[in-house]
Amino acid sequence: MKQNHPSCNLSDCILCRLCLPDWIPAVELNRKVILLRKGQQAFTEGDVVKGIYFIYSGVMKVHQRWDHEKELIVRFARRGDIVGHLGLGKEARYPVSATALEPTSVCYLEMPFFESTLKVNPELTYALMRFLANDLQEAHRAMRNLAHMPVKPRIAQALLTLKNQFGTNNVGFLDFAITRQDIASFAGTTYETLFKVLNELNTGGLIQLNGRDIAIRDEAGLAAIVDPGGR
């Protein structure tokens, strides 16, 4: 990992935005800004927890082993998000891995300093509590869907989630270069099944495929696949 030290953007970084002004110099002294290459891991599932990461730019996937050859993507994290917080539990090892999907810059704090930061910055502590609660809710939803939802609705849900998180470019395609394998891992299915379902959705006019790019053309139609009853 290459270390750098650019100026922190106070409007985007939750760490600096919610810390007391008097604490910012301490953050400046203790932080490390790390540049990750595409495909490089910040940490690996099972690693001893050493610190926490705030994404300054770029996109990462948070994933865990599904079996010996497959992975399940838990979520995607982008600018302003926190990565490594799952290591805050009693088990001092990361339960997931975090991998850069494009060149990514992260602000890294070692855990002892981060814990001290939480003790003296109540707004940051409260925001982290809400973030953890939301993350837990999303994890429960994803596990429920994986257990009970057929594969086609899971893929439709994955596409809607990607659009909501990353938006679209000026011609309507997802504004995020993601591989088919990563979409499959996010939906909890195989590449072959994803390929088949994407072609079905494309033929039905719900999405448009252009090489690796995907555009959602009928969001209501995808939502109806996810929840046929419209609840």
Rank of each mutant, 00 (worst) to 15 (best):
P103A: 00
K196P: 00
L201T: 00
K119Y: 06
K50Q: 14
M60A: 07
I207M: 01
K90Q: 10
R141P: 02
L35N: 13
T190D: 04
A215C: 05
F166P: 00
A156D: 03
T203C: 01
G188I: 05
E138G: 12
T117V: 11
R93E: 09
G205M: 10
L18G: 05
F195G: 08
H148P: 01
L136A: 13
N134V: 03
L118C: 11
V27Q: 02
E200P: 00
L36E: 01
L206N: 09
M149Y: 03
N170H: 12
L132A: 10
Q3K: 12
G204N: 15
I155R: 04
H68A: 15
F131G: 02
F54K: 07
N170Q: 15
I155M: 01
H5T: 10
V62S: 03
R93N: 12
M111T: 10
N164V: 00
Y56T: 08
H68S: 14
H148T: 09
A215L: 02
G229Y: 08
M60Q: 03
N30Q: 15
I155A: 03
G167C: 05
I82K: 08
N199Q: 15
D12W: 09
M111A: 09
I24C: 01
A98N: 07
P21C: 07
I183C: 07
R75V: 02
A177E: 09
T168Q: 12
V171Y: 07
A139Y: 04
D22F: 09
Q3A: 09
C19P: 02
L20W: 09
K2Q: 14
E219K: 10
R31I: 05
G205R: 06
L29V: 04
G89A: 14
R75A: 13
Q41G: 05
Q41I: 03
N169V: 07
L209D: 02
T99W: 03
R154W: 08
Y108E: 04
S7H: 09
L118V: 09
L146Y: 14
A224K: 13
P21N: 10
Q165F: 03
R141V: 07
N164Y: 12
S7W: 02
G204L: 11
V96A: 01
L209N: 01
G39L: 14
F166V: 01
R154P: 11
L128R: 08
I55Y: 09
I216V: 15
N134F: 12
D213P: 00
N121H: 12
G84T: 06
Q64K: 14
V74L: 13
L159S: 08
A142Y: 00
L88F: 15
Q3W: 10
Q208G: 07
L86R: 06
D227V: 00
V171P: 00
R212Q: 14
N121S: 08
P21A: 10
P95I: 08
P150R: 13
L118R: 12
M111D: 06
D175G: 05
E71I: 13
L136H: 13
A100V: 08
M60D: 02
I183M: 15
G221L: 04
I14E: 05
N169Q: 08
W66E: 14
R65N: 11
V48H: 11
W23R: 08
W66M: 11
F54C: 08
K90C: 04
R17M: 13
E45N: 11
T189V: 06
E45P: 11
Q157R: 10
Q137S: 15
I14N: 04
V74P: 00
A187H: 10
I82F: 15
N199R: 14
L20C: 07
I55F: 05
L222Q: 03
C107W: 01
L128A: 10
I34Y: 08
E69V: 14
A177V: 04
